[in-house]
């Protein structure tokens, strides 16, 4: 990877993952300062009515968490987590929308749905990251981000608990970066710096 590793003009860093991805987040989040972009997390999660994922992530990070409700404003310097059982969509006026339509890739929230929507709303100001997981969700979304001019990053499959999802993305997209966890942390820390 000889290319310039400094990513600039990022408004939204969106991270998608499924089985095995929470561990990655837990390793990364404690090392991040309050960022100059919004950090959006879309994980496949059980349909539960509790907030254990939100509480866990809030406990691991100094970045404040904004509860995602329909039409909340998306602001830099906050973490947003896609709620269970809704798709997460991005409006062009900096609001988030929620949607209970069909599952995509057996998932709601679906990573593809959120990634395609953020690509449409924010274009080249998006950095998309796909982590560990056991299904094909996320690949189409990464393609959409890339086509809109954004940067795409995939966890190195050998370093993932569940390599299927990142492998599928590596085979079907042209990631700007394929990285292990320390390199991912380093990349994120240098966004907009």
């Amino acid at each position: 990877m000889e290319k310039d590793t400094l990513i600039s003009n990022c408004k939204i860093l969106i991270i998608g993952g499924s089985a095995g991805s929470l561990d990655v987040l837990i390793k990364i989040l404690p090392h991040l300062d309050i960022p100059s972009f919004a950090l959006v997390i879309v994980l496949h999660r059980k349909h539960t009515e509790d907030n254990t994922l939100e509480e866990l992530i809030a406990a691991k990070s100094i970045i404040p968490l904004k509860e995602v409700e329909d039409k909340v404003e998306i602001l830099p310097g906050y973490i947003y987590i896609a709620p269970s059982d809704y798709h997460l969509l991005f409006e062009k006026n900096n609001l988030l929308s929620l949607d209970t339509s069909e599952k995509v890739n057996y998932s709601r929230p679906s990573i593809d749905v959120a990634f395609e929507s953020v690509a449409d709303a924010y274009g080249k100001a998006v950095v998309g990251v796909l982590l560990s997981g056991a299904n094909a969700d996320g690949t189409d979304g990464l393609i959409a981000i890339k086509n809109a001019g954004g940067i795409i990053i995939v966890q190195q499959p050998e370093t993932a608990d569940m390599p299927f999802m990142p492998s599928h993305a590596v085979q079907n997209t042209s990631p700007d970066f394929i990285v292990d966890i320390p390199a991912l942390l380093d990349l994120i820390k240098r966004i907009n710096s």
Partner: peptide, 9 residues
């Protein structure tokens, strides 16, 4: 209607 979801539908 919400543009993001209407467009997607």
């Amino acid at each position: 209607y919400s543009k993001a979801s209407f467009k997607r539908r």
